[in-house]
Design a protein around this nucleic acid. Structure first.
Lengths: 206, 206
DNA sequence: TTCGTATCGATACGCCTGTATCGGAAGGAT
DNA sequence: ATCCTTCCGATACAGGCGTATCGATACGAA
């Protein structure tokens, strides 16, 4: 009953949550969010139904966790791209972010599919929509900084409203992400790549 | 058993299919595609389960029909925008198409939500993905024509690859459509509008 | 060792799903 | 009027769902 008794429990719990997150990832990538049920998740994670239930009281909690889990991964991926002096130019950074969305491996392909499912759910679930809106707000801040830097460096096409450009880029990221989600397994990525090239060229004025 | 006996049956059948399509629209806009079940659809359309079953042998057939139903509506909406001499300039047409996607009324809001669901399903259902790919192909053709006309008229920003621009616009349409899908009911549309302005400005070089 | 508690997996519950089946109404043809 | 076909809606069925419950087990405290 002493406090440090909880230490192993918490660790265990975190491990379980992690593996549940991964399990949901795999299932959702395979069959969409509709295929995610408590039983299936438990089986995929090698846990009993009870174990999953004890970790997540309701299915909603489960899916919310899965979204957070995915957001963390994507945010981490984006945050690795550093734009600034002694680092990437804006054009390089913008290209890096967009190219990184392309489904060039299984993990990325799976993530694109999961996000498609999350987006769809956000359309009818306020909680999901809010989380994505938060993510957007955060992205807007980062984009504003990047675009400001680009303007300083003369990298930006002249005479454009920075906020509007940020909105356009947000929309473009969503579109690219979702377009990629519905490409078949071995499909060529020429189309998306061309879109990225065009976007970078237009925004930076070449 | 004579042939014209089928005439009223066919008409009836088409009416039923139409009302089923509308019913699915309403349900999917309200609760997402997960909420679409045979029973619920039947109730929403004021039909018996058997009637729906007779019209659509399986649920898959039902959803496929719903997608076709929605594609027809969107295609019709787009086809009303005419770009060319004695009609809209490219910039006007492009803006019209994009603005028309905004959830400015209930019907548009519902449609955006439904498409979010369809996109998500296309990520895990080959049949859906193919239908959307066909739609993309068709849009590519139309965009190519519009962009060609724009180039002729000197409306297009110079030195850009037309095919790449078309890909970018496709991605942007998807992104705009889906971003709108997850906006809350009365949310301001400033962001999307700014994105549209920026897109039109960039593509036409002002 | 024995007790008390906390955590475990299994299973029960009621509901909803997609689909199949079936008795009866309806309505031309004879 | 009778038959026969066609279409109708109600209901049956098996299975999956989210969630609640419960006996067994493991394990630290006494």
């Amino acid at each position: 009953m002493c406090q440090n008794e909880e230490v192993p429990k918490v660790v265990d719990s975190q491990n379980r949550r992690q593996s549940v997150g991964e399990a949901i990832h795999r299932i959702a990538a395979r069959e969409g969010i509709e295929g995610v049920s408590v039983r299936v998740v438990a089986a995929e994670a090698g846990l009993s139904v009870g174990a999953v239930q004890r970790e997540f009281r309701t299915k909603d909690e489960l899916l919310r966790f899965a979204l957070d889990f995915s957001i963390a991964e994507v945010a981490d991926r984006f945050s690795r791209v550093r734009i600034g002096p002694e680092s990437l130019t804006f054009a390089e950074g913008m290209r890096a972010v967009l190219v990184d969305l392309l489904p060039t491996d299984d993990r990325r392909r799976a993530q694109a599919r999961i996000w498609a499912a999350f987006y769809a759910r956000a359309a009818v679930d306020t909680g999901f929509a809010e989380k994505l809106a938060d993510l957007d707000a955060q992205a807007r801040v980062n984009l504003a900084a990047a675009l400001g830097y680009a303007r300083e460096q003369g990298e930006l096409v002249s005479g454009r409203n920075t906020e509007a450009l940020a909105e356009l880029l947000l929309v473009m990221i969503d579109g690219l992400w979702l377009t990629c989600a519905r490409l078949p397994e071995g499909a060529p990525l020429d189309g998306p790549r061309a879109a990225i090239d065009a976007a970078v060229a237009l925004v930076t004025g070449r």
